[in-house]
Design a protein around this nucleic acid. Sequence first.
DNA 1: GCGACTTCGTTATAAGAATGAACTAAGCCA
DNA 2: TGGCTTAGTTCATTCTTATAACGAAGTCGC
Lengths: 415, 415
Amino acid sequence: MVSTTKATASSRRHILDLLLSRDDLSRADLARLAHLTKPTVSGLVAGLIQEGLVREVGAGVSTGGRRPILLTVPGDSRLTVGVELDATNCRLLLVTLHGERLALSDVPLGSTEPTTVVEAISDGIDGLFAERDRGALLGVGVAVPGLVDQQHQTVASAPRLGWDMVSLHTLLRERLGVPVMVTDRGKAAGLGELWVLGRDRSTDLVYLYLGAGVAGAVVLQGTLHWGSVSTAGEVGHMTILPDGPPCACGNDGCLEALVSAQAIAARARRAVTSVDGTSPAASALADVVRDCSDDLRVVRAVGEAATEGDPAAAGVVAETGRWLGIAIANIINALDPALIVLGGPTAEWGQSLIASVEREVARRALPLPRRAARIVIGHARDLAAALGAAALVLQQAPTILAGTRPDGTAASLVT
Amino acid sequence: MVSTTKATASSRRHILDLLLSRDDLSRADLARLAHLTKPTVSGLVAGLIQEGLVREVGAGVSTGGRRPILLTVPGDSRLTVGVELDATNCRLLLVTLHGERLALSDVPLGSTEPTTVVEAISDGIDGLFAERDRGALLGVGVAVPGLVDQQHQTVASAPRLGWDMVSLHTLLRERLGVPVMVTDRGKAAGLGELWVLGRDRSTDLVYLYLGAGVAGAVVLQGTLHWGSVSTAGEVGHMTILPDGPPCACGNDGCLEALVSAQAIAARARRAVTSVDGTSPAASALADVVRDCSDDLRVVRAVGEAATEGDPAAAGVVAETGRWLGIAIANIINALDPALIVLGGPTAEWGQSLIASVEREVARRALPLPRRAARIVIGHARDLAAALGAAALVLQQAPTILAGTRPDGTAASLVT
DNA sequence: GCGACTTCGTTATAAGAATGAACTAAGCCA
DNA sequence: TGGCTTAGTTCATTCTTATAACGAAGTCGC
């Protein structure tokens, strides 16, 4: 039996980092990758196995000699909760160390008073851990509908919750006793999509949420880009048409003014009335457009009509895609991301939207970065924000775990 | 006398990092900042002093007890050379560890053959080190007019040099025996401006080079953002006016099509002829515009006329600033950088340009990130690229130096 | 101006982490 | 079957960092 050396946090971190990013590595692999010697790695791994953080999973293929013993981090050895806050609801998602979703729980909120919300989150977590070891809780991430000051981890302002300078991080941290991270929903959703889509978690990704408004997130090298005052990612207010329609932000011709649900609904109304004929396919869309004042519902109807071949709807999709394409081409030229992910109701239009976006991008983006960028519809749907909130903690997992000793003492953490 | 413990590369790196970023720290400060104990720091510092990398510089102010002994890294203890390559010239800039410029040397290039260029660089360095200790050379950075593959550190294509897939890094590294880093000129210039302007070197900065074309660089957290295929920062091809004038890239209404020297010259010609009067101030500009086919010369003339109060020139500046302002507003919304730096001939227009840019930005950018972003004219001028190339190496200084032992043995370096 | 309290830096000692060399285990290949 | 290769371990040794105690050099209050 190997003596359980406690090792430095730094080496432990490195080993855990490697094991969490690529699966099925042997001790020898780890030694090579982490620039450590085999005995050192053996010692560290022994400790991690004793803590239940690492498990041996059979032998790998031989490369000419003894077969390696493959190691994994069992996903459920530690668990993370991602929380998505809304004015009326608090959604909790329980995820494993690998980002797999285990359980979902929605807790209605009676009030948006910070203390009430903290209680709701705490109760929700109790529920999720009713039949699990509470000690496995690694940390909690929270996505808030509002502006978050990344540096101080406080909610600078969240009109929908009536919050202003609320130090949610401190409140939760004290209540739960585990690391807590706070983000805004748009950014969290972007990170969430990376964890669903990205094979390696260090890619550059730009996320666009297309709904009533247009939100966004810039994820570089696998981590959220915040900017100097935590407002980066507002792609929705990129000027697309300098003399275009006015936007709620005060500017003219913003992307949001051109592809928000409201703008799309208006476009659909024009398209339907201009066709005026009574083609059978068009009728369903025309009915919805006429009767309904809910823009998002119209957006859905456009999507359905377009897939059924309605030319008016197809026209709306194409025009929306063109505006979006300009914005995305700009993003590709400026940032050269590997992945552009569209989320939200309008993104549900799917391939027809992507196709018209790509036509415009082909015209406007430089060939090299354009060929490298994949434009896709998000996979995480309405779990994106909660998943991203959890991912915020998962990114820190190696650091958090490296500081935890078998006896449960948590080391100091800047978080 | 303290036993010169050799310490881990990691701790050495941390100490050097701190000493290079903030000056005048004591051993006690370092211990606190690096989360090490005083004896450990004393040992490490003793080693660094012996190597000449650190020096004691008098005592600081007491905070109620014994006065601390302040430490600095003498800038000239190690030196870096930044090289800017062009078709006909090779510019070498000798800089200290703190980014201060020591000496400049221009070597004309007979041919652009890679081996010739390598020789020229090597000779240039010999010249700069004629009366200095060659051992002080920390590394060499090279800025190339072309596309550089960051991952493989090769010049993917540089039409102006007639290069295609040239592994400049390997050639130079073998010839010089020190770490070598290769970038493209636009990106290097952006980084160079950060080192001239930035008090702390971890800010987010976006650089725009305004000349015959429009190049750019995105510097996030103090490091260049490359993107997935090393082409990030092409702000010049952001679409500003979807149905605007055609651009060389094939797209319509690019920023470059609107604010390149050529576009500005055309604008100046129109402005001069439309005024047609014979106001005394306008005459100088009109003469240049009529006689001269050199667009960059016209750009300079516009700037001079504008500062002398010529209304036609002021109009040209204002319109150029408006287009630029749209692009910068988009950048501010998307990335929320702390600093936007304008460089190149057109940026020499100075405050009048900034003023009209800011008017447009005020209208189009979101209030929070707009207030946080400072828009300035670069300070590094035609040294920006060479300085940035050197900065690329300086960023690695703690890592490089941490791996160097007193006996001169260099540790393995990924670079 | 004298003593109590602070803070800086060093010394000596002790604990712990990582290494190197040798060794066992286990599989490939001919 | 025997030689070669790779994986993982054991043990003694060497670095690295920490702990505790101490001297040096200040400040502050009375």
